[in-house]
Amino acid sequence: MSEQKPAQGLPDKNAWRRFQKNRPAVVSAWFLAFLLLIVIAWPVLLKISSANFAQLHNPDQLSDAQFSAPSLQHWFGTDLHGRDLFSRVLFGAQISLLVGVVGAIVSLVIGVLWGAVAGYVGGRVDAVLMRIVDVLYSLPSIIFVIVLITTLGGLLKQSHLVQNSPALEGALRVTLLFVGLGAVSWLTMARIVRGQVLSLRTRAFVEASRALGGGPVRILARHIIPNIFGVVITYLALTMPAIILYESFLSYLGLGVQAPMASWGTLISDGVSQINPIRIYWWMIIFPGGVLVATLLALNFLGDGLRDAWDVKGR
């Protein structure tokens, strides 16, 4: 562990300064911000633009312009159904980024709470909690995910909650995917946080607070959690790409989001079937694949930058 930690409060200013010196990380941050901007702005733009433009770029609008190469009309070309690929990549980005963010947050919340409680309370509780983590570690996560998606999807269908609202059902189904992915990726977080908390627990400022009569909740909230901020934010940036990749794998297995909705995973697995010796509709793999890889690269560089800036170790 690093030796000089601020006593409490927000992350220190030096960290920000160190981060700003890391050029790849800064470029990545700008790239991600830019991507986010387009992803958010594009649907709005479609709403306010002329009907003709909106129709042409509606991600779900089928047309006869099947497999057309990139052109001024369709910047990324079109797919089998004649849908505009540019729009589909951007709408797919919504899903993929959301999967990444929500999945990472879910894994973060479970992981931080689990690890913090285990590390802080210690003793038998710690042992039990960490044994559970061990068990889940040894279970191939794909079995868990497959069962979760097939089972809960079925239960959802039967429940009265969504019986009369297919829109709500669709939203819940996507949420299920997010939560499922988050639920299988919190284990590492729990282990790291526990380690951090264990070492912080015995430190002077925590001991002092305890001596002054601070309860465990207060100590966790005021001293411990702020001090693991660096780990957490770094981890967030590094978990997102993993979860986005996992989603694309699930799409390849046919377990991803429901058509006609798209995610980068479904777009890429559509595109991959275009790689063959006879004819390649290259735009169907290059564009979704390129955007995915660029985003994951940016997230990784960002995560590395954050980690170096906060001097986080022990992943």
């Binding site: 790849p24 390849y252 890429i268 995915l292 890889v293 994951l296 690269l297």
Partner: peptide
């Protein structure tokens, strides 16, 4: 920079894309 970029690239491309590309 080049090496780190390659290393990160390797963890960013899904396996079901790498395989068909190598075959091609």
């Amino acid at each position: 920079y080049a090496g780190s970029f390659l290393a990160i690239l390797a963890v960013c491309v899904p396996g079901f894309v790498v395989g068909p590309l190598l075959i091609l």
